[in-house]
Simulated scan of single mutants.
Amino acid sequence: MESTQSSDPAHSQAHASELTIEKSDAIATVTLNRPNKRNALSLELLGELDSRLHELASDQETRVVILRAAGPVFSSGHDLKQMIARSREEYEELFTQCAKSMQRLRQIPQPVIAQVQGLATAAGCQLVASCDLAVASEQSWFATPGVKIGLFCTTPMVPLMRAIPPKVAMEMLMTGEPLAAQRAYELGLINRVVPLSELEDATRELAIKIASASRDTVAIGKSAFYQQASYSEADAYSFAVEVMTDNSMRPDAKEGISAFLEKRDPVWKP
């Protein structure tokens, strides 16, 4: 795999210590790399994640992004040391950057798959819920325990209640009790549960399947999926008709249909 880093020395040092990116076979693997801090989402790490995702968005060679974490914990949420005795402006900066980074996961054209090996709590759970897909080990747990320390997980609530039934989300938010991986799978928070030893291979297998499709087509579909979600059924159909009409006019659609009829593999545009 090719590891990418910034040319700026100061930026490279932060990048190397908190976030790494490797690229192979049209897949970019982004790794949260603060294992000694349980991959807590500091303001700096959130900003770096946002910046790197923004860069990947325009990378024509990257078709899928895997988001993983070093160490036994996926992410424990916000770095609580940055949340003691701060000004209103500082709290707002932190939560605004968090919201921006989470939305960036949805905004980039490539599908993002969370590879969850262990505990994902608070903003860490938010991170999983914000990804397009998620594969988790049997050892993973998901929780929004902010209520236990006097801080309701209001921002994690946003993607969580859109990923699982509202009453289940409310119980998680009100009690702080965790969901085991199998229960999270049953509720739709994650797509697959596998033994820890198979996690990397299972995630990459899913990524490779997606990467074999047209990058342009997948990007159209990802954008449309989220955009129509808040529409009425009638408005969603009107929107979908326009999107699918536009999609049908694209080179990869013409190539894909021709390849199917000619019984050959399609050749997608770069």
Rank of each mutant, 00 (worst) to 15 (best):
S76G: 12
I66A: 03
S58R: 14
D235V: 05
A180F: 06
M157F: 10
G146N: 06
R63D: 10
I113K: 05
C98Y: 13
E92L: 13
E205N: 13
Y237M: 11
K167C: 00
I21A: 07
V30A: 08
V158A: 11
Q110Y: 01
Q117I: 06
S197D: 12
M170A: 11
H11L: 14
R86H: 03
E48G: 12
Q60E: 12
A134K: 03
K23T: 13
I84D: 02
A181I: 02
S230M: 10
A69R: 05
S248F: 08
R162G: 11
T62L: 05
E138D: 15
K167D: 15
G146R: 03
K148I: 00
V73A: 03
E55I: 05
V243Y: 01
A236R: 12
P156N: 09
G47H: 07
E2L: 14
A123I: 04
A122H: 12
S75R: 07
P35A: 08
M161P: 03
F74K: 04
A123Q: 13
P178Q: 10
L53Y: 06
L19T: 03
R215C: 00
L105H: 07
A99V: 12
S24A: 14
L53M: 12
L43R: 12
I149C: 09
L67F: 07
R88Q: 11
A213I: 00
S76T: 14
H11W: 14
P156A: 09
V218T: 10
T4L: 15
M83S: 07
F225H: 13
G146E: 02
S232E: 07
G47P: 07
E2F: 12
E61T: 14
T4S: 11
